[in-house]
Design a protein around this nucleic acid. Structure first.
Lengths: 158, 158
DNA sequence: ATTATTCTTGACAGGAACAGTAGAGATTTT
DNA sequence: AAAATCTCTACTGTTCCTGTCAAGAATAAT
């Protein structure tokens, strides 16, 4: 019952982007360095987040990724959902999926009492994740005095 | 982020025992037949549940398993915890484990904001699972009119 | 135009965990 | 003594996770 690293890395990376946001797009290499995530793996994760509409990208020099919406409008739930594919504790219950794929249904139809437990647990978890936005995390980071790294692309003149 | 089948089967099996409870211990073969679970696999799961103190067993003819406590005192959380080993959404956070093994700690120490999210999510989920007892499930089964199978060991005289 | 930079796409692979199978043995009732 | 039942340990095939890698496409700077 573990979240995949895609979810964990995804939330960390998105927070990192929001926290260090500047006028230019953020680049994989900077995020991966600060968050200690393999750059090649982070590329994959960002593809998922982009497909989910949470990121937009720009290629070429000075390119990179940026949040497609303000930090207060992006929740942890959206990121986990995009990275995990779905937010359902079991496979045997009908639920909304990222890819619209038909989910397997319970072999006991509605005779299985436990399906209600798993479905409700998933819902409760999703509700909690949805209550936390990237901006909330940024505020928390400020309070904790988390260091903000200056964009090296603005530091040529030092 | 899926619960293992051990958890799902475990809860189903424990409910089955509570729902069909008689004066004699319940046997693997009956539970596995009613719940459509591989008997050999269910043996393994029951070993975990027994180690966690949720079941007691008796060998030999007319032997089997029985709940070690009344159904209203056994919650879904206990069963999931016993089957899953722990109830924590990530590995990077300190948490209580079944085996007391030292959990890996976060590489960012307390600098990682996301660990609070995962820990709180795990807590919320555990709290929900803890609010459901086997008796609650039995009551729900009654309301739904779920059929109770008579113990074949009492049916010789028919 | 050319070049360097950055994202894009798809393939591939080692390892761990999951889900189940199997066999030999221990215990208890009949 | 025999049959039923749980107990313990080991084994195995499959899937998923967690990356790595390579070649290509788009863009900005020169």
């Amino acid at each position: 019952m573990k979240l995949s690293t895609k979810s964990r890395y995804g939330v960390r990376a998105m927070f990192d982007m929001a926290y260090h946001a500047g006028s230019l797009p953020a680049q994989i290499k900077d995020i991966s360095r600060r968050q200690n995530i393999s750059p090649r793996y982070l590329e994959q994760i960002f593809q998922d987040l982009k497909k989910a509409g949470l990121l937009k990208s720009r290629r070429g020099p000075q390119g990179g990724y940026s949040l497609s919406r303000p930090a207060e409008e992006i929740t942890v739930k959206e990121i986990v959902l995009a990275a995990e594919g779905e937010l359902m504790l079991v496979n045997c219950v009908k639920g909304l999926r990222k890819d619209g794929e038909a989910p397997p249904s319970c072999e006991f139809d509605n005779q299985c009492l436990t399906q209600y437990i798993w479905a409700e647990g998933s819902r409760i978890l999703g509700q909690y994740f949805d209550s936390i936005s990237l901006k909330d995390l940024c505020d928390q980071g400020q309070e904790l005095g988390l260091e903000k790294e200056l964009d090296h692309r603005f530091m040529y003149f030092i």
